[in-house]
Design a binder for these strands. Sequence first.
DNA 1: GTGATCAAGTTACACGTGTAACTTGGTGTG
DNA 2: CACACCAAGTTACACGTGTAACTTGATCAC
Lengths: 355, 355
Amino acid sequence: MPVDGRRGEKPPGPTVPHAPAEAPGPARPTSNDVARRAGVSRATVSHVLNGTDHPVSEGTRQRVLAAARELQYAPNASARALRAGRSNIVLVPMSRFPAVPGEDRFLENLDRELATRDLVLLMHGDRTTSGVQGAQAWAELRPAAVYVNVSRGTPTAVELLRRAGVQAVLLTGAPRVAYAPTVPLDPAAVARLATRHLLARGARRLACLVPTGPLAELPTQRYEAVVEVAAADNVPVERVDCELSSDSIAPVVDRWRDPAHRPDAVYTNSDPFAILLIDKLREAGLRVPQDVAVVGSGDHPLGAALRPAITTATFDVPAIARVVASSIRRLLDGMDLDPGLEAALRPHLIVRESG
Amino acid sequence: MPVDGRRGEKPPGPTVPHAPAEAPGPARPTSNDVARRAGVSRATVSHVLNGTDHPVSEGTRQRVLAAARELQYAPNASARALRAGRSNIVLVPMSRFPAVPGEDRFLENLDRELATRDLVLLMHGDRTTSGVQGAQAWAELRPAAVYVNVSRGTPTAVELLRRAGVQAVLLTGAPRVAYAPTVPLDPAAVARLATRHLLARGARRLACLVPTGPLAELPTQRYEAVVEVAAADNVPVERVDCELSSDSIAPVVDRWRDPAHRPDAVYTNSDPFAILLIDKLREAGLRVPQDVAVVGSGDHPLGAALRPAITTATFDVPAIARVVASSIRRLLDGMDLDPGLEAALRPHLIVRESG
DNA sequence: GTGATCAAGTTACACGTGTAACTTGGTGTG
DNA sequence: CACACCAAGTTACACGTGTAACTTGATCAC
């Protein structure tokens, strides 16, 4: 039989035995404070503030709302998350190396769109390469969803999140992992679009800049897309592995001084690389786009401002943010991905001066 | 006397009346599961895993650790936060407009440093300008600390956070708000340093680029610092309000074609602006640095790679991240700011070709 | 032999919330 | 009048954790 531990009376002293370390300032008001002030029970407060279908008379409804406003009541996210089993946090693991051109603008839009849908976007540096250790850390937060970027979702990490009760695990792009709904973003689509443009412009010899460093699969994938599109027109593609530094680009351009070695058009997946390349080309006495055309990606502000202005392949960032936010919300509600997803993910070209 | 609500026996059915909406997958293991597997009570598990000074025999300690490892146990952050009254989250409200040059690198370093100190860095878009509405949203998360950037901490917002039980509210730079420990970062220090450099190089006529848009106080503050330093040498400073676009810069440079209107040195608070400016100067047939010297801030990779390479005033980002993380931890532990703060915040100059 | 001391565990409570199940008083219906 | 029904509230529980206070043997000093 169970034994009740309580033996005597409560000690009369004002000590609070099981309270956590005392906070210094006045504590944040709880729903209990609101209830007391409105002269109702806490349950009623909860019903009013969450808009349950439970019937509440208009009079008390207003009293509760007034009390909440006066106390500046904000529900405790931790308690909510504990009760619900999951928080309303959407977690985005980030690294310094944006997987998609224009990632910062994308996140800004996504934040706004998620807020509309009662979700909070939080960004978190993924302090690991393996992905599993990171996933373990994310699991601690019990987020509603984790929005993992391209090529970051290893099967083990996804499985770990799924077991942690994380409902939506979205991965933009391949590889598609079992049990994880995937936003069908083709990370090579911008590359394909740019290549087709350059071919239509008459390019007969291409080059493609491939940034080195971590996350190298992605640039390689794009390079292969360029090769594939160019092959249909029998156009060769030179692969140029490089970093965003003078030492890395200068030798390449130096070799291109000789017309026999020179491509007539270059694709690079980010506008900063295009800017650097154009600078070096000009230094070598080559004209852009007459001698060499250059197309970038991501529509960076500098790309539009410098001369020659950079032709760039990019996405409709606000539109993508909208459908992604909508998809996350739908997944959490047990529905499917937003059907508008595919359409919003088509890239488009901004033709300027450089190519 | 209190009335006990329970009247009859528990119904024999398998229904769980007060459980929240059933999760689909297998739920994440709790400390209870670990306890059961190790054959001890949950309290013992807690003592072992948190390294309390409560004595635990080595044998059970190992059994608990083993059980936790086998189950891949990760504590529930929500429950922890609820119990403790605050989470171990350090929240950084972010906007697209970095307050300090090199903000992205800074955050990357800060994340690593905080992780060392058992804190989690989460970034959050501040979806409001007023600051108060944002603070309300942050209060919901009950973070341990909020690291607010320069010029974002209005007194009301800070007061709101303080009342929410947020211990550390760090604001980099002025204005100093009562009750909020402040990292004494002088946001104009880079401007002063760069100006002194230009004067030493012999500049007799300065210009300063002032980006428009939200958060305009900060650039203005820097402009005033430039004016102040230059005044000591009787050097006039032209104020140039502009955006990062061709249309904005081109007319200014056009006017500078006339030597009578032309400054011999320009300071701008970000390298991208410097890059754009140099491009326009060159287009106008002016040489950098012979006709006009240019100094930027933030040590952007492109600044080092382009020709002329950009002279830039910047901070030791990793060092700052370390002392800031240390300060946050110390504040949470009831101590003062890290004494190494002042020293780490001194900016330095990287002299290259542009000025 | 009798307390006192102590290591090693366990029990019980509190944190703030959402909601199923219950209570209560009022109104209509046969 | 007896009964069902319903609107309007309330009560009680569960979520997972950290820790103060308690229990239980064992050891030790006198």
